[in-house]
Simulated assay, not measured.
Amino acid sequence: MYDVVLDTDECVSAGKCVASGPGFFVFDDDEIAMIDRAGARPDDVALLRIARGCPSGAIKLQLDGVDIEL
């Protein structure tokens, strides 16, 4: 299972992650994406697709503390 890291400083508010993983990826009050760990977590295949689709590269996936090549 991947660990998901979201760099909010890199987020450009495109909303692709929020649209693809609603409830897990959400917007904060400034419309910057954030992770809601209480939300339904997408499976690893979906997370890989979401991370690859992030236009700013703000979403990183890790396995055992090592970054996954996207």
Rank of each mutant, 00 (worst) to 15 (best):
M1T: 12
D7S: 09
D7H: 14
D7P: 01
D7Y: 12
E10A: 13
C11H: 00
V12Q: 07
V12E: 04
V12K: 06
S13M: 08
S13Q: 03
S13T: 10
S13P: 02
G15P: 01
K16D: 12
K16T: 08
C17G: 06
V18A: 08
A19K: 13
A19L: 14
P22C: 07
P22Y: 05
G23D: 12
F25L: 01
V26F: 00
V26W: 03
D28S: 08
D28H: 09
D29L: 13
D30I: 01
E31I: 03
I32F: 14
A33K: 00
M34P: 03
I35F: 08
D36I: 03
A40E: 14
A40V: 15
R41V: 12
P42M: 12
D43P: 02
D43S: 08
D44C: 11
D44T: 11
V45F: 04
L47N: 02
R49Y: 14
A51Q: 03
G53A: 15
P55V: 01
G57M: 12
A58R: 03
I59A: 04
K60W: 08
K60Y: 10
L63D: 08
G65N: 09
V66C: 03
V66S: 07
D67I: 10
E69T: 11
E69I: 02
L70I: 02
L70G: 14
